[in-house]
Design a protein around this nucleic acid. Structure first.
Length: 825
RNA sequence: GCCACGGUGGCGGAAUUGGCAGACGCGCACGACUCAAAAUCGUGUACCGCAAGGUGUGUGGGUUCAAUUCCCACCCGUGGCACCA
């Protein structure tokens, strides 16, 4: 009941009151083992930046919470956690600038963020939070690395990597799209470095194949499909004339082999040096040097004009034995297929352009129409010896059979997906649990030494090397455990590794924080001492298998679409790997995925650097979090976002005031039949729309009901309570207030969702509109079960309809309950 | 260039097995209350027309008794991909 001393005059004071009441009663804590209908509602966890929460946070968390509350009221055991993706560059950049250690800085930010998050009033179970920068979390990040290593999925390789000169670190392919750093926009350069990779390519087929079973936006699935980039074709071996070497090319069109008039190797291809004729060496070298100097971006900008150089060498056509000149050109990529192609200028646009530029011969081998350029479609094979007359699929098949039989090639599948580069030359991340013996061979750090803690005696200067290289403690620790001359791996892991499995760590009993000197209120009072960990922590598992079986996969996952080819693909890969290692029972982590829309400011993305970020604080202070949340939901469809404007917020303020007045003042009467009908129709509408996350129409349906109730003399308190219950997911504090004002003593947030009575939603009369020749001419009320003949007779009798029935009636259409359409000559 | 999605009043948006276009809200106008203003309440509000009526969901065609909804062509916007052989 009401606390007499509590100040509930302002919306924020009132909301604070209910938040503390809910917390005291522990209404949001969940016991994993007791749940009978588990529903895992997850929202992508934030980076704790230290700034105030922005509209984007509210837009994401508010509606998700409303949905979770709805699922809970429908009888599900809903688990809705919140945590922090706390490793990453901003904290380290802050350290570089201000000398403040990232750990303390991050803790402070997490603390303020929790306070702000609590003001939204979400049903987060704070006892089960995670913070990826804490040793009791990142020991699992490291454990995962060791599992990958043990199972042959982690390997070290020297290679050209994407390197950002501003962030002074390497980037994964996914983070270096368009040739610029995903984080800072600096042009990415290629740099040869020894780095750790995870073999995500091993799961390419499964990552692709499983997409069918997922309830994800089609667009996102398509983006992943393209990113994985499966293509089926053949590898074909070309002998090189006068040499022992041969070149293997990859093609998706083995059926066009007879049209191959030259070969092209990537400038970086290993064979180039060996095969180049002496009189071409100088030009070839010059071309290679020029190509190496081009950045990704330049290569893409110049893609219209083809460049290349003849090596002076010739290959032999595998079937005809004819001479085929070998060129190099940067339109052939070194890291796709075999880094070499057979050029079929008559049937490939790029080869066509190249052949035209360098005056190379073309040979048509597929019948098809194309006046200018190449015919790239499928068709009947011609000029192709044993393939003549076959259609493309049959010709491909026959050619592959021929290649296999003659040992000149085979059918292969290629993927665009690259292995995941997980090394980062940064401090603020999980240290890679690897040590090197005096000979430089890598060895995994045994499990019992996890967490392999991040040393604190470091300087924060961007040097292009990990700051861990200069930690005396780190070196001493390694030598103490492993022996003289051993050294630790200095790199840390990509933060996407941390977020690839966090949904599993939330599902721990809640006991895991106890005993590590950490707090009862979740992340609130976490220790900043990285080496203080009790041994009790070391015996537990990543996740309890029975909890994983019942609670995974995540039922509803909400986050931005920008993660389509990063987090959302890494997490899937990690889950698949963990299943193969035997730690989890499911292959896919997220059964259903929804992307919230983006809130812009005057059409532009809000960002700190542009200085156009709108803060929710003043609105929340003035009108309360419920009003702000509802306003965001009322703006339009959740998945579409929209441009920010505060112009309409008074509409929600008025709605809330009117509703409160109406329910408290008029609920001492009885329900009219019309009220009952509208109430039950509203329950139905709100239920379906909540289920589809159509929050904007949920609110308008409640507004319509209110408009009706205000016109009535009175209604029952039962009806008032039902309305409050319908409101509860989208305005939990206000609904709680109303519930208690209506005399209830329990919590509305724990109530069941109202059922509607189908019989009560039926209308006994319906409005029928009458059209003559497709134009609206009249309307009438008729009993619901009326027959076709009767309706049409009545329709014809309408005065305004008669006026237009000037000729012979050619057609009469009746759509039951909707309209009559008459056609006259 | 390719792929996907979208284009509805002054504004945000509703409506899809084809069946009253513009729900709900903002804004605006007028009215009530007030000395006055704000707040609140009431009425109206797609466009043209005094009206009857006509027009109208990016543009142009088509199918249909009936099209925002289906088909064809195009224009514009947003997102993604972009030498992947």
């Amino acid at each position: 009941m009401l606390h007499p001393m509590s100040d509930r005059t302002s919306p924020s004071a009132r909301e604070g009151y209910w938040q503390s009441e809910w917390e005291k009663a522990g209404v949001y804590s969940i016991d994993f083992s007791k749940a009978t209908k588990p529903y895992y509602s997850l929202v992508m966890f934030p980076y704790p930046s230290g700034d105030r929460l922005h509209i984007g946070h509210w837009y994401q968390y508010g509606p998700c919470d409303s949905f979770a509350r709805f699922m809970r009221m429908q009888g599900n055991d809903v688990f809705a956690p919140m945590g922090f993706d706390a490793f990453g560059l901003p904290a380290e950049n802050h350290a570089i600038k201000h000398g403040e250690h990232p750990d303390g800085f991050t803790d402070k930010n997490v603390q303020t963020m929790i306070e702000q998050l609590k003001k939204i009033g979400c049903m987060y179970d704070w006892d089960k939070s995670v913070n990826t920068s804490k040793p009791d979390y990142y020991r699992w990040t490291q454990w995962l690395f060791l599992q990958m290593h043990k199972n042959g999925l982690a390997y070290k390789k020297l290679g050209n990597v994407n390197y950002c000169t501003s962030c002074q670190t390497v980037l994964a392919n996914e983070q270096a799209q368009d040739g610029v750093c995903e984080r800072c926009g600096t042009t990415v350069i290629q740099k040869p470095l020894e780095q750790w990779y995870w073999k995500i390519t091993k799961y390419a087929e499964k990552l692709l194949g499983n997409l069918d079973q997922l309830d994800w936006p089609e667009k996102t699935k398509l983006m992943q499909t393209n990113w994985i980039g499966k293509s089926e074709g053949a590898e074909i071996v070309f002998e090189i004339e006068g040499q022992k070497e041969s070149v293997t090319v990859f093609t998706t069109r083995p059926d066009t082999l007879f049209g191959a008039t030259y070969l092209v190797l990537a400038p970086e291809h290993a064979l180039v040096q060996k095969i180049t004729a002496p009189d071409h060496a100088k030009a070839v070298e010059k071309y290679i040097a020029a190509a190496a100097k081009k950045t990704e971006l330049e290569r893409k900008e110049l893609q219209k004009t083809k460049t290349g150089e003849f090596t002076g060498a010739y290959a032999l056509h595998p079937v005809t034995g004819e001479q085929v000149p070998i060129w190099i050109a940067d339109y052939v990529l070194t890291n796709y297929g075999t880094g070499a192609i057979m050029a079929v200028p008559a049937h490939d646009e790029r080869d066509h352009d190249f052949a035209k530029a360098f005056n190379l011969p073309m040979k048509e081998v597929v019948k098809g129409e194309k006046s200018d350029g190449a015919f790239t479609g499928e068709g009947e094979s011609i000029n192709s010896d044993f393939l003549d007359g076959l259609n493309t699929p049959a010709a491909k098949k026959k050619m592959i059979e021929w290649l296999v039989k003659n040992k000149k090639g085979k059918g292969v599948t290629n993927f665009r997906l690259r292995d995941w580069l997980v090394s980062r030359q940064r401090y603020w991340g999980a240290p890679i649990p690897i040590v090197y013996d005096p000979e430089g061979n890598p060895h995994p750090v045994p499990d019992e030494h996890l967490p392999w803690t991040l040393p604190t005696d470091v300087e924060f200067k961007p040097t292009g090397e990990s700051p861990l290289r200069y930690s005396k403690e780190f070196q001493a620790r390694t030598e103490k455990i492993f022996g003289k001359g051993w050294r630790p791996e200095y790199d840390t892991m990509d933060t996407f590794v941390c977020s690839s499995f966090y949904y599993l760590r939330y599902l721990n009993s809640g006991q895991w924080l106890v005993g590590s000197g950490q707090s009862e209120s979740g992340m609130g009072k976490l220790t900043t001492n990285h080496s203080s960990l009790t041994t009790s922590l070391k015996s537990e598992k990543l996740i309890d298998p029975s909890i994983e079986r019942t609670w995974m996969p995540v039922s509803m996952y909400v986050g931005g679409p920008e993660h389509a080819c990063m987090h959302l693909i890494y997490a899937r890969f990690v889950m698949m790997a963990l299943k193969d290692f035997g730690f989890v029972s499911h292959e896919e982590p997220f059964q259903k995925l929804v992307h919230q829309g983006l809130i812009t400011n005057q059409g532009a993305k809000m960002s700190k650097s542009k200085g156009n970020v709108v803060s929710p604080d003043s609105f929340v202070e003035k009108f309360g979090s419920d009003v702000f949340r509802m306003y965001l939901m009322f703006m339009g469809p959740f998945t579409e976002g929209g441009d920010w404007s505060d112009a309409g917020i008074m509409g929600i303020v008025r709605f809330v005031d009117r509703l409160e007045r109406c329910l408290t003042e008029k609920s001492k009467g009885t329900d009219s039949p019309e009220t009952l009908k509208r109430l039950h129709k509203t329950i139905r509408k709100v239920s379906t729309d909540m289920n589809e996350m159509k929050f904007n129409t949920v609110i308008s349906a409640l507004m319509e009901l209110l408009n009706h109730l205000e016109k009535e003399a009175g209604f029952s308190s039962e009806t008032a309570k039902t309305v409050a219950t319908l409101l509860s997911p989208i305005a939990p504090h206000l609904a709680e207030e109303l519930w208690h004002a209506l005399g209830e003593k329990s919590f509305i947030v724990l109530q069941s969702w109202p059922m509607f009575d189908e019989a009560l939603t039926k209308d006994d009369t319906v409005t029928i509109v009458v059209q003559v020749n497709g134009k609206l001419r009249g309307e009438m009320q008729v009993p619901a079960g009326i027959s076709k003949d009767e309706v049409i007779a009545q329709a014809k009798a309408l005065e305004n309809v008669q006026k237009f029935l000037t000729g012979e009636i050619k057609k009469e259409v009746y759509v039951p309950g909707k309209l009559v359409s008459l056609v006259v000559k």
